[in-house]
Amino acid sequence: MLYIINKNPSQSLALKNCVDQAIAGDAILLIENAVYAAINTAQSTLLQSLDDQVSVYALTPDLQARGIGLNQCYARIEPVDYAGFVMLVTEHQPVRSCF
């Protein structure tokens, strides 16, 4: 399963629900305002509780648009561009957009 999240954790419980549900082999893609969840801060512990076998991606253009550098993100965050987004969609079934 590929989870696509587009809201930051203070706007929506979507990411929290995905973190709770995701199992090994799943992937989470952070786009739009959800990329704020990629920032490694003392307050954001959400991704720390996620299974190591779940991959977490963040859309690079959306990180850049918000001035977020990869050095600010959790080490497990894998940056992808739109071509990578398309590849994730083709590699996973089903794909679920969570709001």
Binding site: N6, I31, E32, N33, P61, D81, Y82, A83, F85, V86
Partner: peptide, 19 residues
């Protein structure tokens, strides 16, 4: 909302990849 922009960029990349 960013939806229309995200979708448009996704479509460009998908078409470029032959989908």
């Amino acid at each position: 909302h960013q939806a229309a922009d995200s979708a448009w960029h996704f479509i460009q990349a998908a078409i470029l990849s032959g989908h």
